[in-house]
């Protein structure tokens, strides 16, 4: 014990130093190591989560781009198909219109022809009637006083009959 006393051993001081160290141990453990290590863990978790989310986002983006391409391809095909159909419909419609116009033209032409024929015939009939009247008048005027009335009537009837036969 003398040896320890010579080195400054003091049980009270020893106890005080042990207590001092235990207090520091508790303070460091409670207020430094625990929060700092928890913070590191929290950060690691956050980074891992961030990386995972980034990977998921990248995969989603790739999928979206792929889907976008697919939609564009489908839209292009659909547009081409619609365009083709529209062109076909337009061609059909044009053909139909042409056909209708042709038919209408022909119909109008036919109607016009018929009307012309009818009007020509009417004019001809009217002309014939007029000529007959004129011929009747001319013959009756020419024969007036030359022959008897009966003879006149007979000639006139014969002329009228002849004229009718000519027509």
């Amino acid at each position: 014990m003398d040896f320890l006393k010579n080195l400054g051993f003091d049980p009270v001081l020893l106890g005080a130093q042990i207590l001092n160290f235990l207090i520091i141990l508790y303070l460091l453990k409670r207020f430094l190591y625990k929060p700092v290590l928890e913070m590191i863990k929290q950060r690691e978790d956050k980074i891992a989560e961030g990386l995972k989310q980034a990977e998921e986002s990248r995969a989603t983006l790739e999928k979206s781009l792929e889907r976008e391409k697919e939609i564009l391809r489908e839209a292009e095909l659909k547009a081409q198909r619609v365009l083709g159909e529209a062109r076909q419909q337009a061609e059909d419609a044009a053909l139909q219109i042409n056909e209708n116009a042709k038919n209408e033209g022909e119909r109008l032409l036919l109607a016009a022809r018929e009307q012309i024929q009818r009007e020509s015939k009417e004019a001809e009939e009217r002309l014939t009637q007029k000529i007959t009247v004129i011929a009747h008048d001319l013959v009756s005027k020419s024969l007036e006083g030359l022959i008897s009335e009966d003879e006149q009537k007979r000639i006139l009837r014969k002329t009228m009959d002849n004229l009718k036969n000519v027509n």
């Binding site: 051993f9 003091d10 020893l14 130093q17 042990i18 160290f21 141990l25």
Partner: peptide
């Protein structure tokens, strides 16, 4: 220096 005292080093060793 606290560690130049045997009471401190002995206390630390005991802990």
């Amino acid at each position: 220096a606290a560690t130049s005292d045997l009471n401190v080093t002995l206390g630390l060793s005991l802990v």
